[in-house]
Amino acid sequence: MHMKTVKVTRFDTASLVGILRPLYLAFKEIEDGERTCFDLSSVSFAPPLFILPLVAYLKSTGGSVSGSSPVLQSYLDCIHFPDGIDSVSGFEALAQSSKTYVPISVLKKRSGAERERLETMFSSMVLKVLGASQASSAIHYPISELVTNIIEHSKVEEGYVFGQYYPRKSYLDICIADCGKGLAGSYFDELGLKFSDTEAIEEVLKGHSTKMNTERGFGVRTSKRVVCEAMGGEFMLLSGSAVLVANKKKQQLVTLPDFHWQGVIIAYRIPKPRGPIDITPYLE
């Protein structure tokens, strides 16, 4: 059976936008759900904002990757690409063999406490690799809020989370993704509200929950504040054809032509914390 091949262009790692660009260019070549072979021969490594959507896409559609250099292939093997780890025992075994690489974690909605334990292991390993125990709440908070958001709203069985710390650059990249109904889809299904993808992102950032409960809906907004304001990082939220790119000073909303991600991708980058970080002022 014929499979389309898409060549992935090089990443500019200076910012999340520099990683989004090759992701956008690759996926705009693909029809929704089309089985695709991603040619990685032009890239020397792959950051979480690229790896995780690729994992989610390959898992939901089939498809494959080709052309990885030996170094890149070795890295992909270390992080358990593309299957990821979906059990505590699997994560424990991998954590024993690799002290540096946090594996791709597959969080299954139905597995309940097992999922929470796997997420605990993921965020604890991120904290350990980062060496930032004094800032543990600031590390745990966005991971826990954003993962629970995806588990609750995507209406699919699986969500994915992956992170990589870059010691030479002293920053951590985290990505969380699903192939669910997306933000606009959630507002429509839960509340009957019709929003465009950009409007849906705005609503999320205003703290308007997709659930009929005024005490909910703070998770994404407060996580963005913790990442951008408390930690001085960058934050990205992508759903459908829209993306929000934010830092401490600005938030930009962009429609991505000829591109559609069925679900949600959240990515953020934080510099390594140098001391304790109080997240309380950012909570609502």
């Binding site: 660009r21 205003k206 934010a246 000073k249 930009q252 909303l253 962009v254 950012y282 609502e284």
Partner: peptide
Amino acid sequence: ANRAVPKAPARAPKFERISAEELF
């Protein structure tokens, strides 16, 4: 505490709408 007395939402920077070309 926030359930009892909800905190006023913090002022976020305004959404700036730009094109994909401008972003990249």
